[in-house]
Nucleic acid binder design. Structure first.
Length: 955
RNA sequence: GGGCACGUAGCUCAGCGGGAGAGCACUACCUUGACAUGGUAGGGGUCACAGGUUCGAUCCCUGUCGUGCCCACCA
C-alpha cells in the first residue's frame, strides 16, 4: 500500500539501502558482462569539502545519464572519488591548528603535520561521499578512489618520471606567480586579475653626467610606474627605437635615484611611445614583461623582495653589487620593510628629492591569489614546469578531428583559444600536502629523477663514485644507510600541483599504470560532465595527459553545464551569505525535487537561478505523481502477465499508448542529445497534462463501472502507462520512482535495472569489441526487452476520438466559465448535425463528458435549437440550450469575436496564396498546409455565421 | 585590447525560418469519489532597436544600444 502522504525523507533513506544492498550500481555486474560499457568519471570533489549547489547540479546530470544508460542495458561505470586538494586542505588544517592554539605546521614539522592531515581526511573525508549518496548518485561506490591513494600516487610518479625523461618536464629559473602569504608558487590559472584603484607615479631618473635639476628636463628621463618600490631592482630603462624624443639617450645611462646604481637606457619595441612618458623602467626580477626585455638586452636581474614580500637588501649580493659608497645605509634603513609600506616610504623619499614629476590616479589589473586573496608577486625562483605547448598539440587535434566533442559546441572555441596560447605549466608547490616530487639532489645540485628513492639514490651514488666525489666504499655505506647520506643526497621538498594528479583521473582510477581489465574495458570514458570554470584547470589537462599516455582522448563528449546562482543571479559565496545548501533543500523537499528542478533548468544558455520556491514546485510535481499512483492502486490497477498494450481495444487505452509512445521518444531523444531540460519538461508535461489531467479522468467511468472487458483493459492500461512513467522518470527522480515501482507496481527487480521503454540503437562494431563476450550485444539475458515498441506505435484514429472529447470538454468548460454558469448548474448538450463518426463515438463518452463538463444530458438533433450557445468542436456544432440563462448580447459578442478570428485566418492564408512567389518558392507541403488552413477557416466562419443567425432569430 | 553569451508575458526562463510557449505571480470560480503539496477557466507580449537576406524573420546576416562572463603583460 502506498502511504497517504509523500514523505521523501523516509523513501530516500530506505531506497539508498536497497540500492546499496543489491549492488545495483556495480560496474561489471555478471548480468552485464556482454553489454557495452558506459563510463563517466566523477569530477572528484575536495576530500574535505561538502556538497554545494554546483556539485548538486553536476552530479544530478551525471546520474541522469548513468541511470538512463544503465536502463538501456549498458554496463555502467560511474567512477567516484575525491581529490586531495593540496592548498585548500593544507589551509583548512593549518587554520584548525591555529584555532585550537596547537603548534603550527612548521613547529610540528613535515611528518607530524602530514599525519595530522591524514587524520583530518579520515575524520571528514566521507562527508561529501555520503552527501552525494543522499543526492542519489549511482556511482560504483566500491571503486571509490582518492588522488593520494597508493595506486594513484604510483601513476603520478610514473607520469612525472616519464615526462621528465622525455624532456616534457623540466626545472627552470624564471618568474613565477608567487603567493607571499602561502609562500608557494602557483600557476597562471590560480591567479585572478582584479581591478584595483591606485596611482601612476612619474619618476625622474637623472641622466648620467648631467647635473640633476627638477627644472631642467634635459637632466633626467621620466618613467611611469604603478609599482615605485620595485625601482630598487631596476636594471634598465627602455625606450622605443623609433621614438625621436629619446634616440640620443639610447646607449647612455641613468643613475637610479636613492640607490645610485648605473642603469643602461636601451631601445626596445616593448616600450610604447603612447603610454606614460614613452620611457619605461625595466625590473627584470619583478615583472614578466621586464623579464623578457631584460633577456633581450642582457640586463641583470635583481630581486629586491623576499618570499614574504618584504624588501630584502642587506646581504643581497645582487643588490649591493656595483653600488657607490654610502648606498648600504639606505639598504639598512629599508631592509625587511613590507612591499606596501616600502612603496609609501620610497615615494616620500623620492618626492623629497624632486624625483617625482607627478602622480596620477590610475586603475589597473592587479594579480591576486585565488586561495589567499593576497597580491601575487612575480618572483624569481627555481620551479618545475610541464612543457604544455608540446602536450597541447595532440589535445587540440583530438577536438579538431571530432574524437572529442564539446556540448554545447561553442566551448570548443574557448578550449582552442587557451590551448593554442598555452604557457609552461608550473607544477611545483612549496607545500607539504600532496605528491612529493620524485627528484633527488646531489651536493652539486645535480638532479636525479626516479620512481623510487632507492633507484634515484643508486643512480646518484653511482654517478658521484664515477666522478670520484666519493669512494666506492662511501657510496656503499650511503646506499645502505639513510642517515649516512643525509645532507649528501636530499629529496626535493616540493609537492605537485593538485591538478597534476587530477589530470590522470580518467585512467589512474582504473588502475593504470598496471594493465588492468578495467583500463581496457572502461577507457576511454564516454562523457565528462563539468562546469565551464574548470575547462582549463582540468579538462584541458586530462586531454593532454590522456592522449600522451593512453594514446586516446579520455572522453568522447565533454558536456559543459552552467553555474548555479542565487535567485537574483548573484554568484553564491560565503561572504555574500547567499549560499543555498543543497542538503537543506533535500531535507525540506527531497532529493528528487531538487534533482528535477535542476534538470528542468539545465539549458545551455543561462546560469541557473535557484530558489527554494523552484524546488518546491518540483516537489509538488512529485506529490502529484505519488497521488496518481495511489489512484491507480485504489482502483486495483495491476499489470496482468503478458499484457500487450498494442493490442488494446478501447480507444482511450489506445490513445494513452499513443501518447506514451510519443513521450518516450521525446525523452529518449532529448537524453541522447544531452538536452536535460527538454527531457525533463517533456516528462513534466506528459505526467501532468496527459496522464493526470486527461487519461486518469477519462478512465474513471470505466474503472468505477461494471466489471467487464472495458474495466479490465483500462485497469491494465492505467498500470502499464504508470509503469512506463516510472521508468521514464527514474533517471531524474530515482527515489520516488523506485519506491513506487516496488510498492505499487510490485514488479520483480529494481527499477534502476529495469529496461528502458525504448530499445536503443544497435551497438557499433567498436562498441561490441569492448563488450566482453561474443553473445548478444547490448542486452544481457536477464533484461527482458519491452513488449511494446514505442518507436513505431501511433494511432491517429484514437487520437481523433480522444482529441474530440478533450476539445469538447475544454470548450464547454471555457464557455461556462465565461458565462458565469455555476458548477452546480447542469446544462444539456445538443450535438447538432453530427457526423456519423461523432454519432458512433459519442455514446462511449456520454458519462465522462457529463461529469467533466457538468452536463445533465447529451442528445442529437439536426439543427441547433434557437437561443443556444453554439460551439464549434472539430468542425461540428455542439450547442448548450441556455435560452433565458445566457446574455444574448454577450453571446453575440463572443461569436463576433470568433468570426473575426476566422476572418483573420482566412485573410492571412489567402494573402499568402495570392502571392505568386509564395506558391512558387515555398515548400509544397507548406503551401498545401496553407490551403487547408484556408478551407478550415472558411468552414468555421460559415458555421459561426449560421450560429449567429440562429441567435438573432431567437432574440 | 581579444573572445563568448544573453536582451521573448509582471518575474524566472524555454522555443527558433511558415499562426507567440511553460512555471511562478495575478483574476474569477470550485472542499467533484488520487491529489488544496489540488482542480477549472481567464487576463497579459510590435519576441531590445535599426537595416538586410527571404515568398515569408522572434528565429539567419550586419549594425546600434543594454546586460553578464572569460582571457590578456600594458608602464
Amino acid at each position: 500500500m502506498i502511504e497517504k502522504n509523500y514523505q521523501p525523507a523516509d523513501i530516500e533513506a530506505r531506497m539508498s539501502v536497497v540500492w546499496e544492498d543489491s549492488l545495483a550500481f556495480k560496474a561489471g555486474r555478471p548480468d552485464r558482462r556482454d553489454a557495452v560499457p558506459f563510463t563517466i568519471v566523477i569530477p572528484p570533489p575536495n576530500v574535505t569539502g561538502s556538497l554545494h549547489m554546483g556539485h548538486a547540479l553536476n552530479n544530478t546530470l551525471q546520474d541522469i545519464l548513468c541511470r538512463f544508460e544503465r536502463m538501456r542495458g549498458r554496463d555502467v561505470l560511474w567512477q567516484p572519488g575525491t581529490d586531495h586538494a593540496g592548498i585548500a586542505t593544507q589551509m583548512v588544517v593549518e587554520r584548525q591548528l591555529m584555532e585550537r592554539q596547537q603548534p603550527s605546521r612548521r613547529e610540528m614539522g613535515r611528518e607530524k603535520f602530514l599525519e595530522r592531515v591524514w587524520q583530518w581526511k579520515a575524520e571528514s573525508g566521507d562527508t561529501i561521499i555520503n552527501q552525494l549518496k543522499r543526492l542519489g548518485a549511482s556511482c560504483d561506490w566500491s571503486r571509490e578512489r582518492f588522488t593520494m591513494d597508493e595506486g594513484l600516487s604510483k601513476a603520478v610518479v610514473k607520469v612525472f618520471v616519464e615526462l621528465h625523461r622525455d624532456g616534457l618536464i623540466y626545472k627552470d629559473k624564471r618568474l613565477v606567480n608567487w603567493d607571499t602569504k602561502l609562500l608557494t608558487a602557483i600557476s597562471d590559472l590560480e591567479v585572478q586579475q582584479t581591478e584595483v584603484k591606485g596611482s601612476l607615479w612619474y619618476l625622474r631618473y637623472p641622466v648620467e653626467g648631467k647635473i640633476f635639476s627638477p627644472d631642467d628636463p634635459a637632466s633626467f628621463i621620466v618613467v611611469a610606474t604603478t609599482r615605485p618600490e620595485t625601482m630598487l631592482g631596476d636594471t634598465g630603462v627602455a625606450v622605443h627605437p623609433d621614438d625621436e624624443r629619446y634616440q640620443k639617450l639610447v646607449g647612455k645611462h641613468i643613475i637610479l635615484p636613492l640607490v645610485g646604481r648605473k642603469v643602461a637606457i636601451v631601445a626596445d619595441e616593448y616600450s610604447d611611445p603612447e603610454k606614460g612618458s614613452g620611457a619605461v623602467k625595466v625590473t627584470p626580477a619583478h615583472d614578466f614583461n621586464d623579464f623578457e626585455v631584460g633577456n633581450r638586452h642582457g640586463l641583470r636581474r635583481i630581486s629586491v623582495l623576499d618570499k614574504e614580500g618584504c624588501l630584502d637588501l642587506l646581504d643581497n649580493e645582487d643588490y649591493l653589487r656595483d653600488l657607490p659608497e654610502g648606498a648600504s645605509q639606505f639598504a639598512e634603513e629599508f631592509h625587511k620593510v613590507d612591499r606596501f609600506a616600502a612603496r609609501k616610504r620610497i615615494v616620500e623619499r623620492l618626492e623629497s628629492f624632486g624625483f617625482i614629476e607627478r602622480i596620477e590616479p590610475h586603475t589597473n589589473m592587479v594579480p591576486h591569489g585565488d586561495r589567499s586573496g593576497t597580491v601575487i608577486e612575480p618572483y624569481l625562483t627555481d620551479q618545475w614546469y610541464v612543457d604544455a605547448k608540446t602536450l597541447a598539440k595532440p589535445a587540440i587535434a583530438a577536438v579538431r578531428s571530432g574524437e572529442t566533442t564539446f556540448v554545447p559546441k561553442n566551448w570548443e572555441k574557448t578550449y582552442f583559444e587557451w590551448m593554442e596560447n598555452i604557457q609552461p605549466w608550473c607544477i611545483s608547490r612549496q607545500l607539504w600536502w600532496g605528491h612529493q616530487i620524485p627528484a633527488w639532489y646531489g651536493p652539486d645540485g645535480k638532479v636525479f629523477v626516479a620512481e623510487t628513492e632507492e633507484k634515484a639514490v643508486s643512480h646518484a651514488l653511482g654517478y658521484y663514485v664515477e666522478q670520484e666525489v666519493i669512494t666506492v666504499e662511501q657510496g656503499r655505506e650511503m646506499a645502505l644507510d639513510r642517515n649516512k647520506r643525509e645532507g649528501f643526497i636530499t629529496r626535493d621538498e616540493d609537492v605537485l600541483d593538485t591538478w597534476f594528479s587530477s589530470a590522470l583521473w580518467p585512467f589512474s582510477t582504473l588502475g593504470w599504470p598496471d594493465d588492468t581489465p578495467e583500463v581496457k574495458r572502461y577507457y576511454p570514458t564516454n562523457v565528462l560532465v563539468t562546469g565551464w570554470d574548470i575547462i582549463f584547470f582540468w579538462v584541458a589537462r586530462m586531454m593532454m595527459m590522456g592522449l600522451h599516455f593512453m594514446k586516446e582522448a579520455p572522453f568522447s563528449t565533454v558536456y559543459i553545464h552552467r553555474l548555479v546562482r542565487d535567485e537574483k543571479g548573484a554568484k553564491m559565496s560565503k561572504s555574500k551569505g547567499n549560499v543555498i545548501d543543497p542538503l537543506s533543500l533535500i531535507d525540506e523537499y527531497g532529493a528528487d525535487a531538487l534533482r528535477f528542478a535542476l534538470a528542468r533548468e539545465a539549458a545551455h544558455t543561462h546560469d541557473i537561478k535557484l530558489s527554494s520556491q523552484l524546488v518546491e514546485i518540483n516537489r509538488n510535481f512529485a506529490t502529484k505523481l505519488w497521488n496518481a499512483c495511489r489512484f491507480a492502486e485504489m482502483n486495483d490497477c495491476v499489470l496482468p502477465e503478458g499484457f500487450e498494450p498494442a493490442k488494446a481495444k478501447e480507444p482511450l487505452n489506445r490513445w494513452i499508448a499513443h501518447e506514451t509512445a510519443q513521450a518516450t521518444r521525446e525523452v529518449t531523444e532529448a537524453l541522447e542529445a544531452h538536452t536535460f531540460n527538454e527531457a525533463a519538461t517533456a516528462m513534466y508535461r506528459f505526467v501532468l497534462n496527459v496522464y493526470c489531467d486527461w487519461y486518469v479522468e477519462l478512465a474513471k467511468p470505466a474503472l468505477l463501472g461494471v466489471d467487464g472487458p472495458l474495466r479490465a483493459e483500462t485497469r491494465a492500461m492505467v498500470a502499464w502507462a504508470r509503469d512506463e512513467i516510472l521508468k521514464l522518470l527514474h533517471p531524474f527522480m530515482p527515489f520516488i520512482t523506485e519506491e513506487l515501482w516496488e510498492v505499487t507496481a510490485k514488479r520483480d527487480g529494481l527499477l534502476a535495472l529495469a529496461p528502458w521503454p525504448l530499445k536503443p540503437a544497435a551497438p557499433t562494431p567498436e562498441q561490441l569489441a569492448v563488450a566482453a563476450g561474443p553473445t548478444d550485444p547490448l542486452i544481457s539475458p536477464v533484461l527482458v526487452m519491452p513488449i511494446f515498441d514505442h518507436a513505431d506505435f501511433t494511432d491517429p484514429k484514437a487520437e481523433a476520438e480522444i482529441g474530440w472529447v478533450i476539445d469538447l470538454v475544454t470548450q464547454i468548460r471555457s464557455v461556462r466559465a465565461e458565462m458565469n454558469i455555476p458548477p452546480a448548474t447542469l446544462t444539456a448538450l445538443v450535438l447538432a448535425g453530427a457526423s456519423a463518426g461523432t454519432r458512433e463515438r459519442a455514446p462511449r463518452w456520454t458519462e465522462v463528458i457529463k461529469r467533466m463538463a457538468r452536463l445533465s444530458d447529451i442528445s442529437f438533433v439536426d439543427r441547433a435549437p434557437d437561443g443556444a450557445v453554439q460551439l464549434l468542436v472539430r468542425g461540428e456544432v455542439a450547442a448548450l440550450p441556455l435560452k433565458g440563462v445566457i446574455d444574448v448580447a454577450a453571446e453575440r459578442a463572443r461569436l463576433d469575436k470568433e468570426i473575426a478570428k476566422a476572418d483573420a485566418d482566412i485573410k492571412r492564408a489567402e494573402s499568402k496564396l495570392a502571392n505568386e512567389k509564395f506558391v512558387a518558392n515555398a515548400a509544397e507541403e507548406v503551401v498545401e498546409e496553407e490551403r487547408e488552413k484556408r478551407e478550415a477557416a472558411l468552414a468555421r466562419k460559415a458555421k459561426l455565421l449560421e450560429a449567429l443567425e440562429r441567435l438573432k432569430q431567437a432574440s
